[in-house]
């Protein structure tokens, strides 16, 4: 009994740290984007203020009970993803609820939030939400294919479905990272990562110039606050996932911050330089080269 209570308390501590890290990271990333445009950009603590402000709105309107499911599912997806990840390798405190089959679990949670958002945003009845949802689901489905193939290639390679074991297998040298031991899977997954982070060229789901601003169009005040909180947690959790799977995990917070920051920069740099694909173009793109790379990764792992 005592162990489970401490485990929950440890998990909450992880959640707290990762939330703060995610909020600051989103502020810093905004600033980096602004610097490319020769601006100073927002203050790095601006996401905190926005969050507080959204929670202090006095009125709130509802579109029915299903409407609340969107943010709740979305946040569940973000937190769920984080809770089943070993955040710091080898640390009993930040190991969370990692267990033998968590790799499949993680894949599921990755999609969970999108589905919840689709249900909730569809309920709001706004045409832009509906358009955004159909785009989002189409693109996520296409993007999942290379990602899943890459993850399966890792599972075949390491003979395990446990992230903890995958991280353990990569320890020792930088050359043990999956990035170098299985580059094809890494490439497929990093291409999927671009769409997962919701930045250009795969941000047509939220495209403010066409369907302002997609699924969350009708969400406001505290409900938007929940979504914003998730926008801090979810990317951080995804970054930790990719760090664990491809870049050898982290043994302390400093390493984690450095590694996740640079992984994030991959999507930020691509996002700043490119305009966005239409959804049919992005689906076609993912069903092209990334899918082939993913298939090749599995074949290579299986037969060579």
């Amino acid at each position: 009994m005592g162990t489970i209570v401490t485990k929950i308390l440890y998990a909450l501590l992880t959640l707290f740290i990762v939330t703060n890290y995610g909020l600051i990271l989103s502020g810093v990333v905004h600033k980096i984007g602004a610097r490319v445009g020769r601006r100073h950009g927002i203050r790095f603590y601006q996401p905190y203020i926005d969050l507080i402000k959204n929670y202090t709105f006095r009125t709130r309107i509802t579109h029915g009970i299903m409407y609340y499911i969107g943010p709740v599912f979305r946040l569940t997806g973000g937190i769920g993803l984080l809770l089943f990840l070993p955040v710091i390798y080898g640390s009993p405190v930040f190991d969370n609820f990692s267990f033998a089959g968590d790799l499949t679990f993680v894949l599921y949670f990755q999609f969970f939030g999108v589905l919840g958002m689709a249900l909730g945003a569809g309920e709001s009845g706004h045409p832009y939400s509906a358009l955004g949802v159909s785009r989002g689901l189409a693109q996520t489905t296409a993007m999942e294919l290379p990602l899943t193939l890459g993850v399966l290639a890792l599972a075949v390679q390491y003979h395990t479905l446990n992230i903890h074991d995958i991280v353990a297998a990569q320890q020792g040298s930088i050359l043990h990272w999956t990035l170098f031991t299985n580059p094809l899977a890494a490439i497929a997954m990093m291409l999927s990562f671009l769409a997962m982070m919701g930045r250009s060229p795969f941000d047509v789901v939220l495209a403010p110039q066409e369907i302002p601003i997609g699924p969350p169009t009708e969400y406001h005040s505290a409900l938007l606050g929940v979504l914003q909180l998730n926008r801090a947690i979810f990317p951080a959790a995804k970054l930790i996932l990719f760090m664990n799977l491809l870049f050898g995990g982290a043994t302390n917070w400093g390493e984690l911050i450095i590694k996740t920051f640079f992984i994030y920069m991959w999507s930020v740099f691509v996002g700043i330089a490119y305009p966005r694909f239409r959804v049919d173009q992005s689906v076609r793109w993912y069903l092209g080269i990334p899918l082939l790379i993913g298939v090749a990764a599995i074949l290579v792992v299986k037969y060579f």
């Binding site: 490319v36 445009g37 110039q209 330089a273 305009p275």
Partner: peptide, 16 residues
């Protein structure tokens, strides 16, 4: 034009 296709950075430069 760049902004309408989601490339906000061009707008920052040209407005400068």
């Amino acid at each position: 034009q760049a902004g309408s296709l989601g490339q906000g950075i061009i707008g920052q430069w040209t407005i400068y």
